[in-house]
Design a protein around this nucleic acid. Structure first.
Lengths: 333, 333
DNA sequence: AATGATTATGAAATCGATTTCAGTTTATTT
DNA sequence: AAATAAACTGAAATCGATTTCATAATCATT
């Protein structure tokens, strides 16, 4: 069933059917009704692809995520879908499985007029990313990383880590370990590490290599890195840059016959849904991932509508969630 | 940049450019090279929408999920994306937020030739669903529910619950509580409940209303339903139909000054990623959600390719994960 | 009743690709 | 060298919608 068929059945031209469908232009009441009747009877729905071609907009936005099966990604996606739904937009999702090459591919693929705009939740921003991004003919919004020349939605990594360290120091901790990730991820790898170092410095605490380990984003990695720290020196507290790393670390501490937080306090970042149901409940930083998705989508639509082409850096709120995984320690320990 | 422009630049016709792009038909080597050179130089990428219109396939499959920000959904999606990627397909995702109306809308919307096939991960299957599904002009695969006339990927709910009950009974439990969900969700609400009842019966244990409560899919609901059971009678074990319900239940038990599993054993279903990091680690059933996504996608592609139009019911594997949240009880208790 | 303004309608061009079809060039066979 | 087959090429039709443009019908005004 195409518009021509409907036109024939209703005894009008395709142009008139189109006018009825889109409620624009003049159509005499009787003809409109006739057309509407036919449409209803045959259950006609226009071919969205043909519409997109003619209208030069697909009502689809592309979303590139590093790994869809993570809580972060799914919460961000939830925020995006919500705003998209309000605007009658659909989401085309590329899951890049943490592979940069895939990210570039996805960017290139989506740029072929298939989508009206792109949101990328990136872990790394390479020169290649920038090169491809600059070629895009549709607006792009970045979540989680700074990307020169584009609007970015950022997490207050610096502040958040400072808050965590402050909290630990206030609880009397002086030997604070750190489990981080690869510095290729600027925001999580570099900024959080730097914030940790700055915060130590601010409290006049020494930075010690032996208390620092770098892993990836998995729980297992948290376990391993914690083990490597314990082999060298025993901190009284550990700051892990993600909740998953923290969970792995806690497991490792327990497996070593130690207790959290009695022997070692642990904090994470991210506030995974189950963080407060762990034993002990995890002290962490709650990030409003859903909000960041909403913000990204709103900004993107502003650009799609040409309302606001200026590039911004928007920081999304966070909140320290103090739970039982951090314990005050005695002055003399 | 469109194909016409490339043709002009390369001194050939659009037809030839098309032949080069798609590597079909005859093209003299020198012309091919000339065209390829131009394509490379201007970075030409064809308009995917125009291609879709002409080719009558978009290389996009639609996926409808009840709530994207759940571990189940994201693991299923991961499986789907993996298979889709192999086939050079993209995913158009509709998040329906558990609203049936939205599900129907999404089905209708996607049917307009926008996608080459649809996968729906459903919680309910109503007559409306069926009516719309039957009108579809593209293949449909259902995950998680049975839908007459369509291929479904199903979880072995019956077997899994039997296994759990067997496990509890073997551990000496006779008063086994149950936290379920709304029967509108046939597979999770009805099948799992029925399996619980059948299993009790099989072990010649009485079914007691007081030990049964029905909630929704949230952790909070698990908490509340556990509370309502405790008010009436104290079971020695509780089978919750999802891990989240189980986690809520455990929290409730703890808050009532009781211990898991010393006082009450708890099991879930689903094997959430963090299940084994809880205290106690949760005994549950591991479902291969990612596999179900892969299966669904494979079946869908079979149908898209017209290889196999027969409707199947495919059961995806599961595995009992025995952990510390269930404890053997003494004969005399 | 004549004029101008408004409303109404469809034929045809268009979006950017693919493909058929007919015609041309090159290669192979006798 | 002629006949036949194979390789090559581009003009034009096509996918299914929208929109412009020209024209026709209706309405309002004097």
């Amino acid at each position: 069933m195409k518009i021509k068929d409907i036109a024939k059945l209703a005894g009008v031209s395709p142009a008139t059917v189109s006018r009825v469908m889109n409620k624009n232009g003049y159509v005499k009441a009787e003809k409109r009704e006739a057309v509407e009747k036919v449409i209803r009877e045959v259950g006609y729905r226009p071919n969205e692809i043909a519409k997109s071609l003619k209208n030069k907009r697909s009502n689809i936005i592309g979303v590139i995520v590093p790994k869809i099966s993570t809580e972060t990604a799914s919460r961000v996606l939830e925020g995006i879908t919500q705003i998209a739904k309000e605007r009658n937009y659909q989401l085309l999702i590329s899951n890049t499985n943490l592979q940069i090459e895939e990210e570039i591919n996805a960017l290139e693929f989506l740029s072929n007029k298939l989508v009206d705009g792109i949101i990328i939740s990136a872990t790394e921003v390479t020169d290649q990313h920038l090169a491809v991004a600059r070629q895009l003919t549709v607006p792009l919004v970045v979540i989680g990383q700074r990307m020169a020349g584009f609007t970015s939605i950022l997490y207050s990594n610096n502040h958040a880590v400072h808050d965590l360290v402050d909290h630990l120091v206030q609880a009397g901790h002086k030997k604070i370990g750190f489990i981080g990730v690869d510095p290729k991820d600027k925001e999580v790898g570099q900024v959080r590490k730097q914030a940790y170092m700055d915060a130590l410095n601010h409290h006049q605490l020494p930075y010690k290599e032996e208390l620092v380990a770098i892993g990836d984003f998995s729980i297992e990695s948290g376990y391993q890195q914690m083990a490597s720290i314990l082999k060298k020196q025993r901190p009284t507290a550990v700051l892990a840059v993600t909740d998953h790393l923290a969970i792995g670390a806690i497991q490792c501490i327990k497996d070593n016959g130690l207790s959290v937080p009695a022997d070692i306090s642990v904090t994470g970042l991210g506030d995974v849904k189950l963080a407060k149901y762990l034993s002990p409940p995890l002290t962490t930083v709650h990030y409003y991932f859903k909000t960041s998705g909403q913000l990204a989508a709103s900004e993107l639509f502003n650009q799609i509508d040409q309302l606001n082409m200026e590039n911004k850096e928007i920081y999304v709120d966070y909140e320290l969630r103090i739970r039982a995984s951090v314990k005050k320690i005695e002055r003399n320990s």
